[in-house]
Simulated scan of single mutants.
Amino acid sequence: MYAPPSPAAVAADAASSTTTLDAIAIDSSAAAASDGGAATAISVSLQAWQPDSPYARRLRAADGKRAYALYLDEREAHRDSTAFYLDVADILFEKGERDLALRVLSNLAELGIEDRALLRVLAFRLNQAGEPALALPILQQVRDMAEEEPQSHRDLGLVLAAVGQEQAAIESLYTVVTGDWDRRFGGIDLIALGELNAIVAAAKKPLDTRRIDARLLRNLPVDMRVVLSWDTDNSDMDLWVTDPNGEKCYYGFRDTYQGGHMSEDLTGGYGPEEFVLRQPKPGRYKVEVNFYGERQALLTGGTSLQVLLFRHYGSGQVEVTPVVLRFKQAKDTVLVGEFEVR
């Protein structure tokens, strides 16, 4: 059973090591400069990802309402296929049929009401569609089903922030920061700490942070941030970011000459993995994901991934572009998109 240590224990750890506070290689003076300076011009372009099954090709060739009719025709043959519902919803979103896409997605909850992987996928898609309020009760259910997994608390905290419940959000994230988690989830506490501080800094009214050790309260804004999460336990996904110098930041080369930093390699499932760069030089930055391997059967016709591409993270000008895609087999590599810095 999960039992978080006291805040005093966390403070003792912070006092004995600078790792927590300096994990993303930004000092406090640089952070302050980033807060006050002019924003770097950064744009994001995405690599289109489309399912290529026969039914997906048929639906893609039809107009919106006709595509839904084709979905109804195909549904009986694919009734138990989660990949089918994900593919159809994606196509309907592309065609601007938002309500129909949300209706199709709702089938996932009915298929696997006690399957936290399916529920996570559903929440990812709803959040990507700009419906965090619909994702919230799903992630509350996931948290209750898997309290021993820090990702459950982190996912819930981020959606709480998205619906304006910042106080509850930082409390959920602080659970991740202070938790005594399985060693395969190493490094998630540092990522959650950065997210907690960004929420505190962006809140429109002061939040109650008395429970949080003051030495852990420091916002560290960055101009470029990429976060990868996935839904399948015991799976290893790797985030790669290649900068204009040609350096690829990944688990085997975590710190680049330019100052890019990759978080710890989480090989046991779910992620997150995070890349941050405080002040990117002009040029293009390629974001890729590699499916290194998995050690369990995939119930969703593949592993679903969520990639969040942030610009000006931790500042009042933050922008985020979410991407959800799916891998069918190990050793695949997918180009997610690119940042262009001018």
Rank of each mutant, 00 (worst) to 15 (best):
L122N: 05
T242C: 07
V226M: 04
G36H: 14
G36M: 10
P150I: 01
P244F: 04
G252H: 14
A214N: 10
L325P: 01
W240E: 04
L160R: 09
A297H: 13
S152Q: 07
G37F: 00
I191Q: 07
L126M: 12
A12K: 13
G112K: 02
L239D: 03
A38S: 15
A77P: 02
Q317K: 15
A8I: 09
A67Y: 02
Q50S: 10
P206W: 11
V323N: 02
R79D: 13
Y55T: 04
V289S: 00
P150T: 01
V10L: 10
Q50H: 11
G36N: 15
Y174E: 08
V287N: 07
D87M: 00
Y292A: 04
L102Y: 08
A8G: 06
T82V: 15
D208C: 06
P282E: 09
E97C: 06
N245P: 00
Y68D: 01
F275H: 05
L111K: 11
L139I: 05
L46V: 10
V177P: 01
G130I: 07
N219H: 13
R311S: 10
G37Y: 01
S29W: 09
G112I: 04
A117M: 10
M237C: 03
V336T: 09
I91Y: 01
I188P: 00
R184M: 12
A146R: 12
A15D: 11
Q140H: 07
G246R: 07
L122F: 08
E247C: 03
P206F: 10
S43M: 05
S29C: 04
L122R: 02
V142T: 07
D231A: 15
A38E: 15
R103I: 00
E273A: 03
Q258A: 13
I26K: 02
D90W: 05
S229E: 06
L277P: 01
K248Q: 14
G194N: 08
P54A: 11
P244I: 02
G293F: 04
S17D: 12
R125L: 12
R184Q: 15
A14L: 11
D180M: 05
V320T: 12
Y292G: 00
K95F: 00
Q306L: 11
A39I: 05
L173S: 02
Y55I: 04
A69S: 12
G246A: 08
A83F: 09
V163W: 07
L102G: 06
E149T: 06
T242I: 11
G37L: 06
L70V: 06
R278D: 06
V334G: 01
A9W: 07
Y285Q: 11
F339M: 08
Y285R: 10
T19D: 10
P54T: 06
L298T: 12
D73Q: 14
S304G: 05
Y292L: 03
Q128E: 15
I199W: 01
F310D: 06
